[in-house]
Design a binder for these strands. Structure first.
Lengths: 193, 193, 193, 193
DNA sequence: GATGAATGAGTCTTCATTCAT
DNA sequence: TATGAATGAAGACTCATTCAT
């Protein structure tokens, strides 16, 4: 048999690409940069991705899995007003840790004609899972009546854009306005205690 | 060299560039595309802009002047709860009309290393002007106590990101969630009537 | 290294290569195409041939054996005028059946610097064998006096080039001009009956 | 006005390309080789030709104009038997002088899938012009009855292929068999004097 | 000043070849 | 021995920029 295909190679290349794109942007990243960083030859990248664009495109459904797994449960625990606080903080924490992923996602917005960009299924799934949590809180009267799906989009937009302003676009340390943002969300959603 | 002679030609080139960038993205736009659209020769662009990046950079201070002129006054008129509604709707309307401008602003995010991007002075000026309006509402007790500047950033982020999702990224017609967003903002800021 | 082990594999590879080259030309044929067609792995080709050029080079002595075996005897049978007809028709028939072989031979002409191409020994041998046949016909007075070797080259050139025009280059069905060609050769060589 | 387009540049590039292709073959010729030989930059070639293949393709209707202008008239002068001699010698002389052109034409045969190759209009036109000459000779009884168009194809094939064997493929000096070829053609066509 | 033909450095991509398994 | 994943040199092509007119 031949040298066996290393199943981790595709993701190793993606990880290298993510780092390069996040560091220098799509344009300034050379296929060779990715290859060097991944510790493979240029040609190898092309066994796994048809073009440079395809490498970037592979990040389209960048996973929000961690937010789903770690932030969501917090939304169900304890009083809603407090749960919003905890869940939001955890979300920001995860985003901070996955900085490159979010840099990349934003990078991709500017990447081509906008029509190419579609919110990934994962995000929609995430919103739907969160929706159930909100629905329950509405039922208990802790959350003001609203369309949970739409409202969660608004919250997600708010968090994401603020995160981007601060951590990606260098407006400062997000910690400075974290409290204000949480308070904003709490008042927008929760019936004050 | 730059800012030479005919200032109307400079802005004609910028307008052509904005349209091209918005249509195809920065990467896919050729200097020649801009030239053709502007009805000039490629060489001419170089009398007004040093490089292609410089053409894009000229949009950095993309004007929020209309929002300042048209949305802000509405925030001061009538009851705060209602004023928020009117002002937000007007803001969205302006953004809809200036679609290319916002496309471009988002395009620039993905443009290069993120550190290059700085929120424009105009935006800061805008937030400061709005802040005074909020401060007055806090004084009258119509707005819950908060740091006006930070809070307005949050509102701006929420509106902008939601606008982008819907109008630029094609998630649907923003009209569908306009009411929900306004309600969200009202509850986040205003002491309910 | 070369001519290793299984000789049937070597010829299987050559057959696959011939088909590929004839179909797509030398340039457009990938080593992988040949491998797939031969049902072996790319690496295997390299156990039998040092390089891609070597695969092509192996066709240099493309066999004219069939023409020798099947067309030549016809040239000796019966009256020369008629023999020319039968022998030429048989030659064309064989060429038709060995289309790929001739495609390949022509392909090789365009292959590299022309100096690389040498008429194969087999062809020379063929011409020499035919020469004897012609010499005999000159002796009987059926063929006009000429240098048999040179004259046969001319006949071969005529047949080959015409065959190529019609069957390879798609000028039409060679049957349309087969009679004219035979008549042409008959008049050029034979003393009319 | 800008630097004016040099109308001779396209043909200068083609001439350089012809020389390179004839010298090293299509494969071994680099776009840069052509550029250097033509005394232009690589990019300039691409203003006149879309691809490397296109440069080669531009030779498809390589002109037989000289043969038409210089060999044809000889076919009408004097007795047919002699005219065939003179016309053929002139044709070979022209081909000798236009060696690169013919090298290229043969090179192109091996270039791609054969179906792409079409005899150029010029060639067909040439055959048709020659046909009239032959028709006249048939009328006078100097040429044996035949389909002039088809027969001329045969003659052209014979000359071309023999020329290629000798001058391009290095079988020797065509002068060695020139007499034999002319005699061959004379007997094939002309009623002996 | 305006033009647009020419430039050529820079990069993505290909694919013959190698070699660990 | 056969395999085919990995390699990386090599080259076609692009396109921002220049500059002769």
């Amino acid at each position: 048999m031949a040298r066996t295909a290393d199943p981790s190679m595709r993701s190793a290349i993606m990880q290298a690409a993510r780092a390069c794109f996040a560091e220098k942007g799509y344009n300034a990243t050379r296929m060779n940069d990715i290859a060097v960083r991944a510790g493979v030859a240029v040609g190898t990248i092309y066994r796994y991705f048809k073009t440079k664009e395809a490498v970037c495109g592979a990040f389209a459904d960048v996973s929000n899995e961690r937010i789903l797994q770690e932030s969501l449960p917090l939304l169900d625990e304890g009083r809603f007003f407090v749960a919003l606080d905890r869940s939001t903080r955890m979300t920001l924490q995860i985003m901070r840790e996955e900085l490159d992923t979010y840099k990349l996602a934003y990078l991709m917005i500017g990447f081509g004609p906008y029509t190419d960009f579609k919110p990934s299924d994962v995000s929609v799934a995430m919103l739907e899972r969160f929706s159930q949590s909100i629905r329950a809180r509405i039922a208990t009267g802790e959350c003001r009546p609203c369309d949970p799906f739409v409202t969660l989009q608004l919250v997600a937009n708010l968090i994401e854009r603020t995160f981007v302003s601060y951590l990606l676009l260098g407006a400062g340390d997000i910690g400075e306005i974290e409290d204000a943002m949480i308070s904003f969300i709490q008042h927008a959603l929760a019936v004050p205690p």
